[in-house]
Design a binder for these strands. Sequence first.
DNA 1: TTTGACCCTCACATAGGTGTGAGCCTTCAG
DNA 2: CTGAAGGCTCACACCTATGTGAGGGTCAAA
Lengths: 123, 123
Amino acid sequence: MKIGEIARRTDTPIRLLRYYEEQGLIEPDRMPNGYREYDEHLVDRVHQIRGLLDVGLPTRVIRQILPCLNEPQTIHMPYITPDMVETLEHERDRMAEKIRYLIRNHDAINAYLDATERHASEE
Amino acid sequence: MKIGEIARRTDTPIRLLRYYEEQGLIEPDRMPNGYREYDEHLVDRVHQIRGLLDVGLPTRVIRQILPCLNEPQTIHMPYITPDMVETLEHERDRMAEKIRYLIRNHDAINAYLDATERHASEE
DNA sequence: TTTGACCCTCACATAGGTGTGAGCCTTCAG
DNA sequence: CTGAAGGCTCACACCTATGTGAGGGTCAAA
């Protein structure tokens, strides 16, 4: 599909699709006329990228961990460097921290909303 | 305590402590000589702010939800507007989404690391 | 009284993600 | 053939969190 369609389907500005490409996160083919050609699987990929950006990872990190996330993993198993392992462990731990943090705050907001609701219905 | 100490204790650049203040996230007192004076409870507060920034919330949002998180909540119960409730619900839902997202990716990285480890030990 | 550590404000700079427009080419329907 | 829609590159602009430095005050210990 062309850029306009994937933009619609992923609800992502065209500008950003080109930016993600520039950052090495996606590599659409090119048609003979120079137009970008997006394979179906890139739809998921774009969603994934946006999700990771949304939780605060920079493109530099996303570029590194993306290949390990939902591809046929066994293929590049042997190619992984100790350096990569370290990055992955580090990001995994950071994610765990963020998860704990988000849960705590999510629950706190929830408790607060519950309390206000109860408070309101008691009047 | 003065800014240098809270900076050390929260591992936060002084520059950012002043920035958080400028953004209305903390309000340290002032000493007669103009120095900022930080109460003990601001240590937690700063940690909280940094945590929220780290998971991708902008200061604008943090400013809104912070008062609801770990204070004696009953006090400002009655002051909450429907508008605020909406913001809180929205942010709570966004947090839930991020949590799901992070867990999925955290687990994926973990699975990948496990697999590489198993792979390595089988050789 | 001087020195050094620490504080103040102001202000310009940077990096990353994103917005926006100019100038130009391709494709397709009317 | 023409016009509209959509594609391309390039480039400047913006916002937010953060870095950094200048110029200057406060205070305590030597």
